[in-house]
């Protein structure tokens, strides 16, 4: 059951998440924007944990920290003013974005009230981590395995496309040049 302390935590984390979310669009430094977004997502992780899914909550925090830090690197690298010395804005296509976000928000809120929420059947398990694993890896095992391979293939493909030097550059046209011709010496197998 959600007790009074949980309710207070939920409200506090929810408000904080919204505040940080708003800061994403008002701050004028890419580094600050990225970490405001990270703070909002950490609040979401906290909300998930308070709602009784501690594994998912902590994993959200873990993955979001790694992801947002790496994203900060790329966002700053791709910025129009990479040094971040000039103020920037996260707002683009203001009217269109406002319309889209307004419609999506209204639809989501309408969904909260329109969906017939099911009543709880049975008692809540003590440790929800096992149930999460069951529901992800039990009936949906095929989905998860397929997703895993698709993700891996995407990562490998993107890396191959982004790499300037391929195996023919390293090993020669007949792939028989040893040791490999690498710009940086040393490393595994050389």
């Amino acid at each position: 059951m959600v007790g009074p302390l949980d309710t207070v935590l939920l409200v506090a984390l929810g408000v904080l998440a919204l505040v940080f979310g708003a800061l994403v669009f008002t701050l004028n430094s890419m580094a600050r924007v990225t970490f405001a977004l990270l703070a909002a997502l950490v609040c979401v992780g906290g909300i998930t944990a308070v709602l009784g899914l501690p594994y998912l909550g902590v994993v959200i925090v873990l993955m979001m920290v790694m992801e947002m830090v790496i994203m900060a690197v790329f966002m700053i690298a791709y910025m129009m003013n990479p040094a971040g010395l000039m103020p920037m804005s996260m707002l683009h296509n203001k009217r269109g974005a406002l319309a889209i976000s307004g419609v999506v928000f209204a639809a989501l809120v309408a969904g909260i009230f329109a969906v017939p929420w099911p009543a709880r059947t049975g008692i809540r398990p003590r440790d929800t981590t096992f149930q999460v694993g069951r529901s992800l890896m039990g009936d949906q095992m095929l989905t998860m395995v397929t997703l895993g391979f698709v993700l891996l293939a995407t990562m490998v493909g993107a890396t191959v496309l982004a790499t300037r030097r391929g195996r023919y550059d390293r090993f020669g046209d007949d792939l028989d040049r040893r040791p490999a011709d690498d710009p940086a010496g040393g490393g595994v197998g050389r």
Binding site: P54, Y55, V58, V59, V61, L62, V65, D127, T129
Partner: peptide, 11 residues
């Protein structure tokens, strides 16, 4: 005594 202590440490 968190039920997800290892994940907490990692996070």
């Amino acid at each position: 005594d968190l039920s997800v202590g290892v994940v907490w440490f990692n996070a």
